[in-house]
């Protein structure tokens, strides 16, 4: 599997996800600068975490208008899988490739901690190595991860099975206490209609080594390799 990691000025978890991809695929992913529109064909595009363009207007808002995102949108339409993590998720909603928006956390503070996630479906490129209903652990680290969409959109996401992950307790209960940012219906990650785009706030790339706290992110990367190779 050949992956590309998009690099914006202000991206800062690009190295983290490059390492995770390299460990799963056995080779270094391509790094694509935000001004590039013309980059080689790849099997997976990853938009990493960070503060693209400083996130000064609104998280992800400026990156959504970058040259590289026009290309990412056009490849998405052709079915190339895209994974957006944290700022990447924010950019995907700002670009309109995923529905809804990520608002400032309900606490109005940055939050960095391990959370538990319930895998809502194993029926996707990204989650095929998990069991539906399985609980995994990975960290969040964000200031604007409060997922919001109107009720109709949320209902549609649920009905079509497009909720990928929900914040939950260690034993899998999605409740207010386990919601780190105020997200609607505890949503931590969603797919687009074709399930070729996944956006999520937690960091699976920071959960690939038990030494650092968790290896529960590995199945996501390993599953992608299996599905896309």
């Amino acid at each position: 599997m050949k992956a590309a990691v998009i690099l914006f000025p202000g991206s800062n978890r690009d190295r983290d996800v490059r390492m995770a991809l390299a460990a799963s695929t056995g080779r270094d992913p391509l790094v694509v600068w935000h001004k590039e529109r013309d980059f080689p064909e790849v099997d997976l595009i990853v938009i990493p975490g960070g503060f693209s363009y400083g996130d000064y207007l609104r998280s992800g808002a400026m990156a959504a208008h970058s040259p590289v995102m026009r290309e990412v949108a056009s490849r998405t339409n052709k079915g190339v899988p895209v994974l957006g993590i944290c700022n990447g998720f924010q950019i995907l909603t700002e670009t309109g490739l995923l529905p809804g928006a990520l608002m400032p956390n309900a606490s109005l503070k940055f939050v960095c901690r391990d959370v538990h996630l319930r895998v809502e479906t194993s029926q996707s490129l990204f989650t095929n190595r998990y069991q539906a209903g399985q609980t995994i652990r990975a960290p969040v680290a964000h200031h604007a991860g409060n997922y919001f969409a109107d009720d109709a959109t949320l209902d549609a996401l649920e009905e079509e099975g497009l909720v990928a992950f929900r914040y939950c307790t260690p034993d899998g209960v999605a409740n207010e206490a386990s919601n780190p940012n105020g997200s609607a219906r505890n949503i931590a990650g969603i797919f687009n209609r074709t399930k070729t785009v996944l956006g999520l706030m937690p960091h699976p790339e920071n959960a690939v080594d038990p030494l650092l706290g968790s290896a529960d992110g590995n199945p996501l990367f390993d599953g992608l390799v299996e599905a896309l190779s």
Binding site: C112, A141, L212
Partner: peptide, 25 residues
Amino acid sequence: IWEQYDHLVMADTAGRPGGDAAVVR
């Protein structure tokens, strides 16, 4: 305090805040 600090970015934090000393690989 330390949950407001991103203490995990760079993916080398082996000993998190709260211990005697932090450990970074």
